[in-house]
Design a protein around this nucleic acid. Structure first.
Length: 430
RNA sequence: GCCCAGGUAGUGUAGUGGCCUAUCAUGAUUGCCUGUCACGCAAUCGACUCGGAUUCGAAUUCCGACCUGGGCGCCA
């Protein structure tokens, strides 16, 4: 019976382990093989005079990163890594790895991201890379767990949609039998319809697709979005939920992922402290105007340089609130006393935007007006507007970028590092 | 889409007109070595993205294509 390498201790006695050949050091009469599985690394020591011919033959034939099954006696040896080593009785090569390898798993020489992504399966064999995805998994678990505890209903909305109803971003057209269809840019309209369905609190973690021809370290053409929508809530209530779930996700990673963080050499993992500052848009552009050369006025988008300047000033996570209505989508609720600004917000990390959300317009006629004001045709929104005519609770929600969450949490320099198989302008394979 | 920087052994690099039969590390192959842990030692192998131009001579200069990295724009 195979046992995980982590559970091999000096007291184990007899053990069978399976894994990849991490490194080979042949000293002549004595050879050391490091065997690696997901849980750790075990030294297999072969004193050539004391093991069978079959073991020696296999040890000679095997190459680095081959898959092997080895069984034998565990000896407590102080000078061995982990204080124990395995003396093999059997040494089976299950799957021989070709040589040379497309990239160095043992990290003796550095590898460029492009090469890593081309050989992603080998890249992920490196403990520091596997750690990213173990932590991502833990973070996703914490998010799901939070939403279930708080009474959210998990939903799945279509990724194939009929029309580019939301405006803004470019969509990927696809062939759908004899019809024109698109990959969905966001679950926005569907999660709002679920408020009319009476589900009250919903969330979805799923893919979104954007056909923007951007080429940056923080954009992807296929991303994972964490979306919620809550009935009878306003923007302040969903902001509270957002900072709460973010802090709890960090706490869970901090509590359960110490080994993975150590594998990534992260020694200063810090759980952010809520509540996060609420910075009105007007004040945000004032900070930016003082620090950067480009002029910035009410109604302008906050560009990358401004974003970084404000982030440096704020130091940690913060919200930008009270955005100009003209630069937010039609479904954002304007303030009653000043409709030039609206109940929309962005959650910012000092490095970039993580999330945006708002209280939504729930009145049908107001929504039709706002759609028209944005230069869009309300008639093409019929499937979306219909639920607003039969009783729509007031509601609010947000969408949070999962990939950027992991990127900023772990200090990754490129969002592609947080995604197993990233899709960008140039990469469609693997 | 625009701007900038690049493309040299499997991997990461040095080399800016002749000193290049192209550097170093890692790797691969073979041999030696009984406590390695970036093992050591010896030998061997392996590369100038593609096409055109300039030149007596091009990895190096120029033009085009393709590819990569970064920045910007765009991105409810």
């Amino acid at each position: 019976m195979r046992i995980p390498i982590q559970s091999v201790t000096p007291e184990t006695g007899h053990a069978e382990v399976c894994g990849f050949v991490h490194e080979v050091r042949d000293l002549g009469g004595l050879a050391f093989f490091l065997i690696r599985d997901r849980t750790g690394i075990l030294q297999v020591t072969i004193p050539k005079k004391k093991v069978s011919e079959a073991v020696i033959a296999a040890a000679k034939a095997v190459s680095r990163e081959s898959v092997v099954r080895i069984s034998g006696v565990i000896k407590a040896v102080e000078k061995a890594p982990g204080g124990r080593e395995l003396i093999p009785e059997t040494f089976e090569i299950i799957s021989l790895a070709e040589t040379p390898l497309p990239l160095d798993v043992s990290e003796k020489v550095s590898v460029e991201l492009d090469t890593r992504l081309d050989g992603r399966f080998l890249d992920v064999r490196r403990p520091r890379v596997a750690a990213v995805f173990a932590i991502r998994s833990a973070a996703m678990h914490a998010l799901n767990d939070y939403f279930h505890r708080e009474g959210f209903i998990s939903i799945t909305t279509p990724k194939i949609v009929a029309a580019a109803t939301e405006g803004g971003t470019e969509l990927f057209p696809i062939a759908y039998f004899d019809k024109e269809a698109y990959l969905n840019q966001s679950p926005q309209l569907f999660k709002q319809m679920m408020m009319a369905a009476g589900l009250e609190k919903v969330y979805e973690i799923g893919p979104i697709f954007r056909a923007e021809e951007h080429n940056t370290t923080k954009h992807l053409n296929e991303a994972t979005s964490i979306d919620i929508e809550v009935s009878y809530a306003d923007h302040t209530e969903v902001m509270r939920i957002l900072e709460d779930v973010l802090v709890k996700t960090y706490e869970y990673v901090d509590k359960t992922c110490s080994d993975h963080l150590a594998n990534m050499d992260i020694t200063d993992f810090a759980v952010p402290k809520g509540p996060f500052p609420r910075l009105p848009y007007c004040e945000a552009i004032e900070i930016a105007a003082k620090k950067i050369d480009e002029p910035i006025k009410f109604g302008d988008d906050i560009g990358s340089a401004a974003e970084r300047a404000i982030g440096a000033e704020m130091g940690g996570h913060y919200f930008i609130v009270d955005w100009p209505s003209e630069i937010r989508p039609y479904y954002a609720m304007p303030y009653e006393n000043d409709p030039t600004i609206c109940k929309a917000f962005d959650l910012m990390h000092p490095r970039m935007e993580l999330s945006s959300g708002a209280q939504r317009v729930h009145n049908h006629d107001q929504l039709v007006q706002q759609i028209a004001k944005k230069g869009l045709n309300p008639e093409s929104f019929d499937f979306y507007l219909k639920p607003f005519r039969y009783g729509m609770p007031p509601h609010a929600g947000w969408g949070l970028g999962a990939d950027r969450l992991i990127m900023t949490m772990l200090g990754l320099s490129n969002v592609r590092e947080a995604v197993l198989f990233p899709r960008d302008m140039h990469r469609l394979v693997p």
